[in-house]
């Protein structure tokens, strides 16, 4: 399908058309924290202030807390009941290419071996409408992680700023359906395409932070037992967990029960390898020391995930740098991994 375009002032109209079929989520500030939230049908001011959300869009697929099932006991024993299924189809409007890439990375974990029904049903029912990033942050390093700030690879539709309008690339069949159901769109002209190309190039070049990940798996393997390096790396970390909880590719979760007046719920909630309790067993804790936890975080993303899925579990979104209260910087850490000969395995 040929590319389309839409006037920026018509975005609300477009979203309202989609809103008839989807729960439309768009960048919003809830209590001052930027995140994807249900769009109110009017406000498109995010087009002006939005750079990226603080809470990554993964929260719409793996919520910070979600009910897995309910249980109840009567004379016959325990009964288990699934929560009412959420049939709402979500349309995420304005997802950045780094975060869209993160969803593809998360899919690998949730699809692998045993299927995760909660995450996967949300993913199946959702459409992603990407919005190219033209004003990246200083902490962004997506281009070093193989992501362009305007790329369309992991979304269904991709919007690129071409002045008063957005160029719309139709990427998937889901995207084609969205376009078929929308009125008020125009065909993109050659001139529009040229403008989009220019925007993409300019945006790409705005990412100045670089990280060289060449040979990173081998380097981390060789330095796994370098306690001194990891202690130094972890020195200022305060184990707050922000870099993992707000990482778009982090997925670790906890499972707990709650029982209120005989009504039981099992729920899962985000968890973090940064917390000592995460691995705590009654008799011991393999990651009691902070440096072991920091090592786990770094190696999981840049060593273990590539070993298992052949991709680095980082998209360069920069949140862990931007949001860290003590200015811990993953790009500096990775660049300071000592180069060693003699690989661990």
């Amino acid at each position: 399908m040929a590319n389309k375009k839409v006037n920026k002032k018509d975005i609300a109209k477009l979203l309202n058309q989609w809103r008839q079929q989807f729960t439309v989520l768009a960048p919003s500030k809830e209590n001052g924290v930027a995140q994807m939230a249900e769009w109110d049908g009017k406000d498109t001011s995010f087009l002006d202030w939005y750079r990226n959300t603080v809470i990554p869009p993964k929260a719409s697929f793996l919520p910070p807390m979600e009910e897995m099932f309910r249980f109840q006991k009567d004379k016959e024993g325990y009964h288990i009941e699934l929560p009412p299924t959420n049939e709402h189809k979500q349309l995420i409007f304005g997802i950045r290419p780094c975060d869209a890439r993160a969803m593809t990375i998360l899919d690998m974990t949730f699809e692998e071996a045993y299927q995760d029904p909660y995450y996967l049903s949300r993913r199946k029912n959702a459409v992603l409408v990407g919005l190219g990033c033209t004003n990246p942050c200083e902490s962004c390093f997506c281009t070093s992680m193989g992501v362009s700030p305007t790329e369309s690879t992991n979304v269904d539709l991709m919007l690129t700023d071409i002045g008063d309008q957005f160029l719309i690339e139709v990427v998937t069949d889901k995207g084609k359906e969205l376009i078929a159901k929308a009125s008020g769109l125009k065909e993109a002209t050659k001139d529009d395409e040229a403008k989009a190309k220019e925007t993409k190039e300019t945006s790409y070049n705005k990412i100045t932070r670089k990280l060289d990940t060449e040979g990173i798996v081998d380097k981390l393997q060789a330095s796994f037992d370098d306690e001194g390096f990891w202690e130094q790396t972890a020195a200022k970390c305060i184990s707050c967990g922000i870099c993992t909880l707000l990482c778009p590719t982090c997925y670790c979760f906890d499972i707990n029960d709650e029982l209120v007046r005989g009504e039981g719920t099992r729920f899962r909630s985000w968890d973090s390898c940064g917390f000592p309790v995460y691995t705590k067993m009654p008799m011991e804790n393999p990651r009691l020391e902070k440096w072991r936890r920091v090592r786990q975080k770094v190696c999981h993303k840049f060593e273990f995930y590539p070993m298992t899925f052949n991709v680095i579990a980082c998209t360069g979104c920069g949140r862990c740098i931007r949001l860290c209260p003590v200015n811990w910087d993953i790009t500096q850490v990775l660049e300071s991994v000592p180069v060693k000969t003699g690989v661990r395995k």
Binding site: T109, F110, E112, A113, Y114, D116, F224, Y251, C252, F253, D254, I255, R268, D271, C273, Y278, T279, K280, M281, P286, Q296, C299, H300, E303, F304, Y305, M307, T308
Partner: peptide, 24 residues
């Protein structure tokens, strides 16, 4: 081996040693 586990199926993350998940 034994580790703290929650999901048991290689998702929740806490039982890994290197790139190995003890549960999976």
């Amino acid at each position: 081996l034994e580790k703290r586990m929650k999901c048991g199926i290689g998702k929740c993350g806490r039982c890994n040693i290197g790139n190995i998940y003890v549960c999976r």
